[in-house]
């Protein structure tokens, strides 16, 4: 039952990763007792599970995910939201306004207009239905300030860190608020543009070095150094 690559080695689609009694994880597939990579990425083994941390992938909605999206269309019954997934997401008007709402009188664009950014939760998505969103929870709804950073969605777990350690550290060190969309969009809002700039730098570093160890310490160090440089100016 051989394994053909070491942990964190770079593989391409079609590369044979393992043979025999292994379980196929993310970005891999199994055929005739052989596990192959299906995306470009870094191999990882977790007991019997073989998976690839893809260097690039697109977002597939999962019910329960928090996402950040852009309103691209208003329809009589609600809004169409681009959440960077294969299918556009839907937000029903009835999710936002009272039940008695009438399509002919309620001015939906006054609530969310084309071009607005919203934070929402995915409530349903399957092979036959476009993703359904809700904003009926605290912290969800229209985004009015801050700046947006986009990363490939496979990097989101690394940005959050173990039990939120990484994102917690960035918040502490930069004083910014960070809202993470599982679809790879991250909203940063800080007290000053300088603070936001530091948070963006930190995110870019994590994105680039997501597969390396000791990253939290290195990012902390980088933020502190940058901050000091700015303060001494």
């Amino acid at each position: 039952m051989p394994l053909f690559y070491e942990k964190k080695q770079l593989v391409a689609p079609g590369d044979l990763l393992a043979e025999g009694d292994y379980v196929s994880g993310d970005s891999t597939y199994k055929e005739n007792e052989k596990i192959y990579a299906s995306r470009l990425g870094l191999v990882d083994y977790d007991g019997k599970r073989v998976h690839v941390v893809a260097l690039k992938a697109f977002y597939i909605p999962v019910p329960g995910d928090t996402v950040i999206g852009k309103v691209v269309e208003t329809t009589p019954s609600g809004w169409v939201i681009d959440i960077k997934a294969p299918h556009p997401a839907r937000l029903r008007a009835s999710d936002v306004v009272e039940r008695s709402f009438k399509p002919e009188t309620t001015d939906l664009p006054s609530i969310f207009d084309v071009g607005d950014l919203i934070i929402a939760n995915v409530i349903a998505y399957d092979r036959t239905r476009d993703p359904q969103l809700t904003v009926r929870e605290p912290g969800l709804g229209k985004i009015v300030r801050g700046q947006l950073v986009e990363v490939t969605p496979t990097k989101i777990p690394r940005i959050i860190g173990r039990q939120g350690s990484m994102v917690g550290m960035i918040k502490r060190e930069t004083g910014c608020q960070l809202t993470i969309g599982q679809n790879g969009l991250i909203l940063i809002s800080g007290r000053s543009p300088e603070a936001e700039r530091l948070a963006v730098m930190a995110l870019r570093k994590i994105e680039k070095e997501s597969h390396t160890s000791g990253l939290t310490d290195r990012v902390t160090e980088m933020i502190r150094k940058e901050r000091k440089a700015v303060e001494s100016n």
């Binding site: 470009l40 260097l55 992938a57």
Partner: peptide, 8 residues
Amino acid sequence: ADAGIPMR
């Protein structure tokens, strides 16, 4: 492959 589309 660059688009991250899963391939055999």
